[in-house]
């Protein structure tokens, strides 16, 4: 098994372990957030938010910020986070105006981020070459992620992100659940409803930033949709759904990484494929469950 070899050999362990640990963190994050994303039909917004990270990476490298030094990595992170949060708020703002539908708003923000990301990364590449600086990462690895680019600093940031997301969701569990279930009634009962969507979008942006290096801009969304979709196929009890969702996120990430080691392929796509296989299984199991519980 290559997996065991990679993770135990002294030369390679340092290269892969940070990615594995970050992957576990990301799996839990995806499990927690995806339930609400699916229930509130925010999958497409998640897509917009995660693609915005691409624009952020482009801008950072154009400004000469690279992840090589600790300060550089921090600045890079801040810029990408800024872009994703701005995209989240931008989508919320655009779609709150009458006349712009949410999906239109997302379409606009998504296209803008992608176009900006490409242009800026290419430009950064040209400038870096001229100035003799290190080249920016190739576009493919930004789009689809690369486990070897993930370092212990990223794992640390991921852990902090998980802490922030977890604590916020615990703190706001009642209004958030009420808002998710019944937006209008939530306000009428005197609970803060309208703010919950913004909170969720910002948490999503944060989670995306933690995820992109590993799974890439394009595939990060899968982690914020599929675990919840899988869990909701299997149960209608909240505690079970959240538990299964976190489990699916973990199995998806770890399974995907093992596959990527064994087959010597990139991690991001493998994670997505494993999650989709799990979804297919859950859909099948869901069908069986419905059939067996249907009245004769």
């Amino acid at each position: 098994m290559r997996t065991i070899e990679y993770l135990t050999s002294p030369e390679l362990a340092g290269l892969y372990w940070p990615g594995v640990v970050t992957g576990m963190i990301v799996g839990v994050l995806g499990g927690l957030l995806s339930v609400l994303v699916v229930l509130k039909r925010l999958a497409f917004i998640g897509q917009g938010v995660s693609h915005a990270a691409f624009g952020g990476v482009g801008l950072a490298y154009l400004l000469g910020v690279t992840g090589a030094t600790r300060a550089g990595a921090g600045t890079l992170l801040a810029i990408v986070l800024g872009f994703s949060v701005a995209a989240a708020l931008g989508i919320a703002w655009l779609s709150s105006r009458r006349g712009t539908r949410t999906d239109t708003a997302i379409g606009i923000v998504l296209a803008l981020s992608m176009a900006l990301g490409f242009v800026l990364l290419r430009e950064a590449g040209v400038r870096a070459a001229a100035a003799g600086r290190a080249a920016p990462p190739d576009i493919e690895s930004v789009l689809f992620g690369s486990i070897v680019s993930v370092g212990w600093g990223d794992a640390l940031v991921g852990g902090a992100g998980l802490l922030v997301v977890g604590l916020t969701m615990f703190w706001l569990r009642r209004p958030m659940l009420f808002w998710a279930f019944d937006e209008e009634a939530c306000e009428a009962f005197g609970a803060p409803g309208a703010r919950m969507k913004l909170v969720l979008l910002v948490l999503l942006a944060l989670a995306v930033v933690v995820t992109v290096k590993l799974a890439g801009v394009v595939l990060a969304t899968a982690l914020f949709v599929l675990p919840g979709a899988i869990a909701l196929r299997l149960s209608d009890r909240l505690a079970t759904v959240v538990g299964v969702s976190v489990g699916a996120g973990l199995v998806g990430v770890l399974g995907g990484l093992v596959l990527s080691f064994e087959l010597n392929r990139q991690g991001g796509p493998m994670i997505v494929l494993v999650l989709i296989a799990l979804y297919a299984l859950s859909a099948l199991a869901g069908l069986v469950r419905i059939r067996s519980s249907a009245p004769a």
Partner: peptide, 25 residues
């Protein structure tokens, strides 16, 4: 009800929302 009804909540959990809306976290 605003939400789709495949929401994973029991009747009691939904009713409890009405009593806990303003409760400290």
């Amino acid at each position: 009800v605003g939400a789709e009804l495949e929401f994973p909540l029991s009747v009691r959990q939904v009713v409890a929302m009405g009593a806990s809306a303003g409760l400290s976290p």
